[in-house]
């Protein structure tokens, strides 16, 4: 019964926050990515199926649909993680959910973004695998660090929590040999701000919804 509640709550909350993410993304973020691709397409950097020269309505529709689908999947994936944490800690309800959403924002966006800032297409980066490994390690360390800091009683453990939070940033993110992007700096700045705001809204909404639906389903399920 508990697992069913978890799955339903994550499915509903994830789908709703994925749809909301898509709406904000279309307004705030995608136009900047598309603009960056116009700089990218003038170089020989091959980049998937959607270069700037494919701007027909059909391609735009397909791009929107694929983004919606992957945003909803990301929403469901993150909701499952948050629902799992909320259930383990018995902190249901939308208010606690907001706090869990804020934690998710720190773990999965803010901490990785400190080392690997939001990148526009065409921005140089270290080898992809190195970046991915650092990203995963940083998210994991941030989750453990925050958990120790918030839930442990002894001061020594809280101190260890802070240390664990800092480890990935002391080690440092993998950097490209030559840091340079094709898109102009103001566009990149705009993109960093837009994606930060977009993720903050997404995460707070996701946490709120997961907390709310976990409690609602728990109240109505047969005991």
């Amino acid at each position: 019964m508990i697992l069913r509640t978890l799955l339903i709550a994550a499915l509903v909350a994830g789908t709703l926050s994925g749809i909301a993410l898509t709406a904000i993304q279309q307004l705030q973020v995608t136009p900047l990515i598309v603009e960056a691709e116009t700089y990218e397409s003038t170089t020989d950097h091959a980049h998937g199926s959607h270069a700037a020269d494919t701007s027909s309505a059909d391609t735009d529709d397909q791009r929107l649909l694929l983004s919606l689908l992957s945003n909803i999947l990301a929403g469901i994936g993150f909701s499952l993680v948050v629902a799992s944490a909320i259930t383990l800690s018995s902190q249901k309800g939308w208010r606690k959910g907001l706090l869990w959403g804020a934690a998710g924002f720190l773990v999965f966006f803010a901490a990785p973004a400190l080392g690997l800032p939001p990148k526009l297409p065409g921005t140089a980066g270290a080898p992809l695998l190195d970046q991915q490994l650092w990203w995963i390690s940083t998210a994991a360390a941030t989750a453990v660090g925050i958990a120790l800091l918030v839930f442990s009683r002894p001061v020594a453990l809280k101190g260890i929590g802070i240390f664990v939070l800092l480890i990935p940033h002391i080690a440092g993110a993998p950097l490209p040999e030559q840091a340079q992007g094709l898109a102009p700096e103001p566009l990149l700045q705009q993109f960093i701000i837009a994606s930060t705001i977009t993720n903050a809204i997404f995460w707070l909404l996701l946490g709120l919804l997961v907390g709310h639906f976990l409690r609602k389903l728990d109240d109505t399920s047969p005991k």
């Binding site: 993410l21 993304q25 973020v29 995608t30 990515i33 998937g48 199926s49 959607h50 791009r63 694929l66 983004s67 689908l69 992957s70 945003n71 999947l73 990301a74 999965f108 966006f109 990785p112 973004a113 690997l116 800032p117 939001p118 990148k119 526009l120 297409p121 921005t123 980066g125 992809l128 970046q131 991915q132 990203w135 994606s195 977009t198 993720n199």
Partner: peptide
């Protein structure tokens, strides 16, 4: 994280990855 054959998964999830700071390139 998965790229997929011919980068098919990368392309489909492209804008999501860029928006959510998943390493993409």
């Amino acid at each position: 994280f998965v790229q997929g054959a011919n980068d098919v998964i990368h392309d489909a999830a492209h804008d999501t990855r860029h928006t959510m700071v998943f390493p993409c390139h």
